[in-house]
Computed example of a mutant assay.
Amino acid sequence: MTDAVLFDGVRLEHPGGRVVLSGVDLRIPAGAFVGLLGANGAGKTTLMRAILGLLPPRAGSIALFGRRAARGSNLVGYMPQMRAALSVSLSGRALVSAAVNGRRWGTALPVASRRREVDRVLELVGAEALASRPLDELSGGERQRLLLAQCLIGDPRLLLLDEPLNSLDPSRQAELVALVRRLQREHGITVLFSAHELNPLLGALDQVLYLAGGHAALGSVDSVVTSETLSRLYGAPIEVIRSGGRIFVLPGAPGLERAA
């Protein structure tokens, strides 16, 4: 089976020349739910931008389902971090509708087809009741459902979700993770789910992709989230503690940010 994402010797740099990731080789299998973890500034959003074709690698190559990653690919649905600008009187349906023609080249979809596509993705995420409500009356979890519907337009095979749990309470976090897991299983979608903390994702993950120190480690939670592996990535002592079904990643040296 073709890998959903293939990094071959990838080096990513910010426009100013700062190296974010170097020498990254990884294969994400099609249909997997992968948690993307790492401290702030580790390169999670940068990696997603590279997959989207918005940041070409300075070295190496990136392929999606056997094709070179390129800007505007209809293989990928992207859910960016929540923006304050969404707090407007735009309705839920209008927000999702705005993405329909943005996912297509050439002429716009006919009105009837556009309406059916919006209805389809709203139903997929259980957001039909949100369609007529203005965004500034919705909770953070409800807005995230609409943004998830938006990135499902056009049946993408890969979803990139950039820290969608930010600012959600634990119950809403659990609801969103369960929804994404259900969609992933029922539709065979590959999911790369970025998060600042590992624990909300534990029941859903097939693999974890951990970024630190310009490097990456991909594998099962038990093989990657260990003191040995994370200490190697960070180049400094890291302690991993498992307690009560939760995992805590703690710096073992002064000055290191809490890792997950």
Score class of each variant (00 low, 15 high):
Leu109Gly: 07
Arg120Ala: 15
Ala70Arg: 15
Val111Asp: 09
Val100Gln: 04
Thr46Pro: 04
Ile62Asp: 08
Val96Ala: 09
Arg93Val: 04
Val88Leu: 08
Tyr78Arg: 08
Val76Trp: 00
Ser87Asn: 12
Thr107Ala: 15
Leu109Cys: 10
Leu130Cys: 09
Ser91Arg: 10
Ala63Trp: 01
Leu75Asp: 09
Met79Gln: 06
Ser91Gly: 11
Ser87Val: 03
Glu142Ile: 00
Ile51Met: 15
Tyr78Phe: 13
Thr45Trp: 03
Arg83Lys: 10
Phe65Glu: 02
Pro56Cys: 11
Asn101Lys: 04
Ala112Ser: 14
Leu130Phe: 06
Leu52Arg: 12
Thr45Cys: 12
Ser132Ala: 15
Val100Asp: 05
Gly92Val: 01
Gly66Asn: 07
Leu90Trp: 02
Leu90Thr: 14
Arg133Leu: 09
Ala108Phe: 03
Val88Gln: 01
Gly92Trp: 01
Glu142Val: 00
Glu123Phe: 06
Ser87Thr: 02
Thr107Asn: 07
Glu142Gly: 07
Arg71Pro: 06
Ser73Phe: 05
Thr107Tyr: 01
Pro57Ile: 05
Asp136Ile: 00
Gly60Tyr: 01
Arg58Ala: 14
Arg120Cys: 14
Arg71Leu: 14
Met48Phe: 15
Val111Arg: 15
Ala63Asp: 07
Met79Phe: 00
Arg83Met: 07
Ala129Pro: 00
Asn101Phe: 05
Leu75Val: 04
Leu95Ser: 10
Ala108Asp: 03
Gly77Arg: 03
Arg83Gly: 06
Val100Asn: 08
Gly53Ile: 02
Leu55Gly: 09
Ala84Pro: 00
Gly72Asn: 13
Met48Arg: 12
Ala112Arg: 15
Arg71Tyr: 10
Ser132Phe: 00
Pro110Asn: 06
Leu52Val: 09
Gly141Val: 00
Val96Tyr: 03
Glu123Asp: 15
Gly92Glu: 00
Gly126Phe: 05
Arg143Ile: 06
Arg49Asp: 12
Leu52Lys: 10
Ser91Lys: 07
Val76Met: 04
Arg58Tyr: 01
Phe65Leu: 10
Arg120Trp: 11
Pro56Ser: 15
Leu135Arg: 04
Pro56Thr: 12
Tyr78Gly: 10
Ala85Gly: 02
Ser97Cys: 08
Ala112Glu: 12
Asp136Tyr: 03
Val88Glu: 01
Arg120Glu: 13
Met79Ile: 00
Phe65Met: 05
Arg143Asn: 01
Val125Arg: 11
Arg143Asp: 00
Gln81Met: 02
Glu128Trp: 00
Pro80Glu: 08
